[in-house]
């Protein structure tokens, strides 16, 4: 495991419930290290998005504690590059790719004007995601895969220490997914990556741990597993992970 880094997300005894009273998350304990890559999985309504929003400081826990980069999630936001699901955005909105990526350079100051330096960073982020040649294209005319790359470029333009990706592989064809994982690997050299996904086909080699969220949270490290073992255990097309066993907070091993 690449465990040299310190913890950048520390969640202890966290619980969250909406006003209606139904608990969404209970007794969550989680440590996420610097330069780690983890994938949040779980059924719909299991609390994946809630966990994501807690980390982003968009909602507050009803119990327990969450620290991101050693401080309140709200204060740590500027260190996080967030990519939402593109399906949640208005696909008719009149913006081009450059407009979108530049939003990663927004800040509170100077009426939101962009400097030459901001533009340079945006272009670098686009080059990294191989979308620089699309810069002047309308966002509405892009394919799903292209939109995802543009939104990741926007997240990279924030110059983040942690990349938070919400369903980066949804609605994208397998060939592009493969490309995407290669890019993730390259990015992982300089930033931590936390992604939400339904798709676990890549668990073996690209992810350090799998965070299963279904009201409770369990961490399954994948570092000791080889690709062939995963295939043996789950079959080739891994699309789910077993939830029928319990493990300690630090995760467990599939012997």
């Amino acid at each position: 495991m690449k465990d040299q880094g310190s913890d950048i997300i520390v969640i202890s005894d966290l619980s969250f419930a909406y006003e209606s009273g139904n608990p969404v998350l209970e007794n969550v304990n989680l440590n996420f290290r610097e330069l780690e890559t983890a994938c949040i999985v779980g059924p719909n309504g299991g609390g994946k998005s809630t966990l994501l929003y807690l980390i982003l400081g968009l909602i507050r826990p009803t119990g327990g504690q969450i620290k991101v980069f050693g401080t309140d999630p709200e204060k740590a936001r500027m260190k996080i590059g967030y990519m939402p699901q593109f399906a949640n955005l208005d696909s008719d909105f009149p913006v081009n790719v450059m407009d979108v990526v530049l939003m990663g350079r927004l800040s509170r100051n100077f009426f939101g004007r962009y400097s030459a330096g901001d533009r340079k960073l945006a272009i670098e982020a686009m080059e990294e995601m191989s979308v620089a040649d699309l810069a002047q294209r309308p966002f509405s005319e892009l394919s799903g895969g292209q939109r995802q790359r543009v939104l990741i470029a926007r997240a990279l333009a924030c110059n983040p220490q942690l990349l938070l990706l919400d369903e980066p592989t949804a609605n994208v064809d397998p060939c592009i997914q493969e490309q995407f994982y290669e890019t993730m690997k390259a990015l992982n050299n300089r930033m931590s990556i936390l992604l939400v996904s339904h798709d676990l086909g890549f668990v073996s080699q690209r992810i350090d741990s799998v965070i299963c969220v279904n009201r409770k949270v369990q961490v399954h490290p994948t570092n000791d597993l080889s690709g062939s073992m995963i295939r043996d255990i789950y079959g080739y097309d891994v699309s789910m992970i077993r939830h029928d066993h319990r493990c300690s907070e630090g995760g467990h091993r599939h012997a």
């Binding site: 968009l58 955005l89 939003m103």
Partner: peptide
């Protein structure tokens, strides 16, 4: 005119704008 970029970001993706520190 002065706040064009901010309005654009908030209209396009207000959650992202919030995460970038915009009010």
């Amino acid at each position: 005119i002065l706040l064009f970029n901010n309005f654009l970001a908030v209209c396009f993706d207000s959650r992202f704008a919030e995460l970038r520190g915009l009010r």
